[in-house]
Design a protein around this nucleic acid. Structure first.
Lengths: 132, 132
DNA sequence: ACAGCTTTTTAGAATCATTATAAACTACCT
DNA sequence: AGGTAGTTTATAATGATTCTAAAAAGCTGT
């Protein structure tokens, strides 16, 4: 199966539900941003049957831990995920409440001059807020 | 009163509770990060009496709208605020779950090359995740 | 194919942050 | 001082997320 390896690699058995989640996440031509609830709704419309929220949460978190999904740093009481796991950044349109990708090449190199003892940098993420 | 103007400026009457919130927020020598619940607890310890959560939420939001407080862009289901409203960035220590300020001068200039029609940049915020 | 064991799914409950409500209270203006 | 509009408060409502435990499905041996 197309996603068996990805699932096993994330420590998950390739069940019917998880494959459906994979289809919704990784079959798209374009990467996209989502909340878990959005994703669950999308899947249910697509397959025309119910899939438990808990399952979607579990699977999404397993993928995030493995690096197949990323969280988007934005201050909100919802958690936003991104299927684009390449190094990139985001515009956040404050009026439309919408996230827009910024490719790595859209942002000049970022030089972090401060160091913290015994810590290494895992990621550098930029959020650019837009207004009219 | 010390904070009357700040409060009026935010469209708020200078009530006893709001002045107490101001004291907790703006009397500190160092700026700090907080969630609304943290702040409420801090105030209650300090003044040794109860102040309603709703009041703290309202006041904090009014200050944020006016730019006396800033939200910190970090993906979490809690909202983090910062009393440091100057242009600066953050380290996020993933192990300790702690935010650390990065002064503006700790980060080289950031060049956003992409433009969105009819939108202007309101802020550019960098989150640097740290691991061991 | 099947028994037996483990993992997974599920609905629903629990939790936690935040926001809404509406009655009691307070500031402010004259 | 009194009237009006803005505030505080406890509590309820909401909404996202996590937990739970029983039922279902996957996996491994045979």
């Amino acid at each position: 199966m197309k996603y068996t390896e990805k699932l096993r690699n994330s420590g998950l058995r390739p069940t019917k539900q998880r494959v459906q989640i994979c289809n919704a996440l990784f079959d798209e031509k374009k990467t996209f941003h989502f909340t878990v609830k959005d994703l669950a709704k999308k899947i249910q419309n697509k397959i025309n049957s119910h899939i438990s929220l808990a399952t979607v949460y579990n699977t999404v978190h397993a993928f995030e831990k493995k690096g197949y999904l990323k969280q988007i740093p934005i201050n909100s009481n919802k958690i936003y995920f991104d299927t684009n796991v390449s190094e990139h950044h985001h515009f956040y349109d404050l009026d439309k409440n919408k996230l827009i990708d910024l490719n790595k090449c859209d942002v000049g190199p970022i030089n972090i001059k401060k160091k913290i003892n015994g810590k290494k940098i895992k990621s550098v993420e930029v959020l650019v807020k837009l207004e009219n």
